[in-house]
Simulated scan of single mutants.
Amino acid sequence: MTGQRQGRWLALYYALYFSALGAFMPYWGPYLQQQGLTALEIGILTATIQATKVLAPNIWGLMALRWGLGRIVPGAALATALGFLALLWAHDFFSIFLITIAFSFFWAATLPLVDITTMEWAERSGAAYGRIRLWGSIGFILLALGMGWLIASGGMAVFLPVIVVFLLAAWWSSRYLPFAAGGTATAVPQAALRNELRRGDLLFFFAACILEQASHGPYYAFYSIYVGDHGQGSMAVGFLWGFAVLCEVLFFAVGEGVIRRLGLKTVLYASFLLTALRWGVIGLWPDLPWIVAVQSLHAASYGAFHLAAVHWVYQRFPTSLRARGLALYASAAYGLGGAMGALAGGWAWQKLGGPETFYAAAALSLLGTVLLLVALRPGYANWERVRVSLEKARR
Rank of each mutant, 00 (worst) to 15 (best):
F206G: 02
W107A: 14
R133V: 01
R324N: 12
N195E: 15
A339T: 14
A23R: 02
I163N: 06
V258E: 00
T46M: 12
Q50Y: 13
Q232L: 15
A323T: 14
D287F: 15
F97P: 02
I59L: 15
A323P: 10
L371D: 00
I72L: 15
R395Y: 11
A309Y: 06
G130H: 02
V388L: 12
R316E: 00
A323D: 05
R8L: 13
A122M: 05
A170C: 04
Q295I: 07
A308K: 01
Y359L: 08
L21V: 15
N195P: 01
I291L: 10
P161E: 14
I138H: 01
A15Q: 01
A56H: 01
S173M: 07
Q50E: 06
F24D: 02
L197P: 08
T118K: 01
N195Y: 06
S271K: 03
F251E: 04
D201V: 08
W347Q: 04
F159M: 10
L150H: 07
M340G: 06
G257R: 09
T117L: 10
V281E: 06
S331E: 01
G325F: 08
W383Y: 15
L55H: 09
T357I: 12
A86W: 05
A127N: 09
A102C: 13
W279N: 05
G200Q: 11
M156N: 07
